[in-house]
Structure formats: structure tokens, C-alpha cells
């Protein structure tokens, strides 16, 4: 239960980290370590080189541009929960982060680490899907931007080359007074979600003008309920509309595993979508 021997590198710039990735085969990037360290300890991962990003300048921090939050990949989950700009512009984020592990792991865990580890049941990828976040990746040929829809390539595999580094996550924010709701079911608080739902709503005069619904934990990557989102637009915010959205969620492709069947995940998705939308409508600043 100890990591196999590796060579440790502690670069101080993103360019240096990228150069190290290029120079060494079989290197792993170490962010907050809340997923990689367990895998190293259990030797699920054996790496010849570990490149620690904790000393890299400029990778952590939150910048509010007015219409987006630019979040450095090494920003700790705990710092996101405490940040006043995040609380004001994207209040669903602190609500969802309460479900990410425990406060001790959130003190180390980072947004970028979670998005690169890309556990299907993790809350942050589910949120980033709801927001259509854009990820900035740096490699030997410079930076490129990846919309979240193109980020997950397969089960736990992000759209990230072997010599690339995620540096920034841009989260386009919604209008002031938008509604938000995060609902999750897990076996114990802090466990990975069996199903989690993020819902965002803009309500104008009692009618829904904009909706985003993302379901995490059900499939290998978060599912956006686009059909339900367009059906909600223009409708009165209320139980009938939310129940219909839940029925769309019941049709999703969902995984089965040792504990939970696909049908159970579909039922949960239907219920949690309704609950998340209801919560979002109650919080919307309009006349809902």
C-alpha cells in the first residue's frame, strides 16, 4: 500500500510542466492528489515520473470577467466554495461541492484534477456540462480550447494529449437571479453519486426562458437533457413542466453495476430532475 518508486518533479511554470511531460514517458501529473494518490498507493497506477503541479505559478485562482468565471485548474475545491464571486455568479457550485468527498479532501482536491480524472459519478464534470464550460489546455504547440461537450472521450478519458496540461476552466455565468438546484443520491454523504442532477433556470414573468439540465453518475459521462431543456422553454415554471422533464430523464441510457441497476438509475434521474428543477424555480428571482 505504498507507491512504487518514481522520480519526482516540481516544475514552477506550466511551460516547464509541459516540457517535462514531453521529456519523460510514463509520467503522471499530480494535482490535489485525492484520486491519483490512492491509485499510486494501491499501485493501480505505477508511474516512472510524477510531475507535481502544486508549485506551478498562475494555475490557481478565480477571475470574474463579468460574463464568465475563469478558474485556474489548480484551484482547490474548498477555495471555490469560499469564493464570494463564485457564490454570487454561480451559486450552484458551492451547493454541488458540498457533495464532493469530504471537507478534508476538498482542502486538497482541485477542479482541474476532478475534470481530468473524469469519474463518471463526480459532481464537477456534471456541473461543467450544465454550464457548457470551456477548458483551456496547454501543450508543446501552445494552448487550445475544448468545449465541455468534446472533453470526455470515453470512460474516464479526457480529450487531453500525453504532453498536454489543463490550465483553465471558463464557466459562462447566467443572468443575475437565475434559479439553480443540485440534487444527488449517494449511499452515504461524500460517496460518489449514484445519480446527480444540476439544473439551471432563467424565469421571466413566470415562464421559463432558459434551462440547462445535466445528469451525472448515470452514464460514462454527464448527459445533457437537451430535449427536456427545449421543451421547458416558454412553459410556465411549475410541477407539470418539471414532471415532463423528469419523464425525459427516465429515458436516458444508464449504466448497471454491482449495486445499482440501469432501471433504478433511470428512476432516480426522473425524480432528481424534478427536484432540482423545483429547487431552481423556487430560487429564481423572477415571479415564479
Amino acid at each position: 500500500m505504498k507507491p512504487a518508486p518514481f522520480t519526482y518533479h516540481d516544475p514552477t511554470s506550466a511551460a516547464e510542466a509541459v516540457a517535462l511531460l514531453g521529456a519523460h514517458e510514463d509520467a503522471k501529473l499530480l494535482a490535489g492528489g485525492q484520486s491519483l494518490m490512492p491509485m499510486l498507493n494501491m499501485r493501480f497506477v505505477v508511474a516512472d515520473h510524477v510531475i507535481d503541479l502544486n508549485g506551478v505559478e498562475g494555475l490557481a485562482g478565480i477571475n470574474n470577467t463579468g460574463d464568465a468565471l475563469e478558474i485556474g485548474a489548480m484551484t482547490r475545491q474548498r477555495d471555490l466554495m469560499r469564493d464570494p464571486a463564485v457564490a454570487a455568479k454561480a451559486p450552484i457550485m458551492p451547493e454541488a461541492l458540498e457533495w464532493v468527498g469530504h471537507f478534508q479532501t476538498r482542502n486538497r482536491g482541485t477542479i482541474g484534477g476532478s475534470l481530468c480524472h473524469l469519474d463518471p459519478a463526480a459532481e464537477l464534470p456534471c456541473l461543467m456540462a450544465a454550464y457548457d464550460a470551456v477548458l483551456t489546455v496547454e501543450g508543446p504547440d501552445g494552448a487550445r480550447e475544448v468545449p465541455f461537450t468534446e472533453w470526455p472521450l470515453a470512460y474516464m478519458i479526457p480529450n487531453l494529449g500525453p504532453d498536454e496540461l489543463l490550465t483553465k476552466v471558463t464557466v459562462p455565468t447566467w443572468a443575475g437571479g437565475h434559479g439553480y438546484g443540485f440534487s444527488e443520491f449517494a449511499r452515504r454523504h461524500g460517496d460518489f453519486a449514484i445519480v446527480a442532477v444540476a439544473a439551471l433556470l432563467e424565469i421571466d414573468g413566470g415562464n421559463i426562458s432558459r434551462a440547462a439540465i445535466s445528469v451525472g453518475g448515470a452514464d460514462v459521462k454527464p448527459i445533457r437533457l437537451e430535449e427536456a431543456e427545449s421543451a421547458l422553454a416558454g412553459q410556465a415554471a411549475g410541477p407539470d413542466a418539471f414532471k415532463a422533464a423528469g419523464e425525459v430523464a427516465r429515458q436516458i441510457d444508464a449504466m448497471s453495476d454491482t449495486y445499482v441497476t440501469s432501471a433504478y438509475r433511470q428512476r432516480l434521474a426522473a425524480t432528481l430532475v424534478e427536484r432540482a428543477l423545483d429547487k431552481a424555480a423556487q430560487r429564481a428571482g423572477g415571479s415564479a
Partner: peptide
């Protein structure tokens, strides 16, 4: 001052 898992942090960190 912040609580962390000492099994998930390297001594060098």
C-alpha cells in the same frame, strides 16, 4: 491549519 489526509499528500509536498 487545514485538515488534510496525510496518506494522500507526499512528505516532500
Amino acid at each position: 491549519g487545514e485538515a488534510v489526509r496525510s496518506c494522500l499528500m507526499l512528505a516532500v509536498q
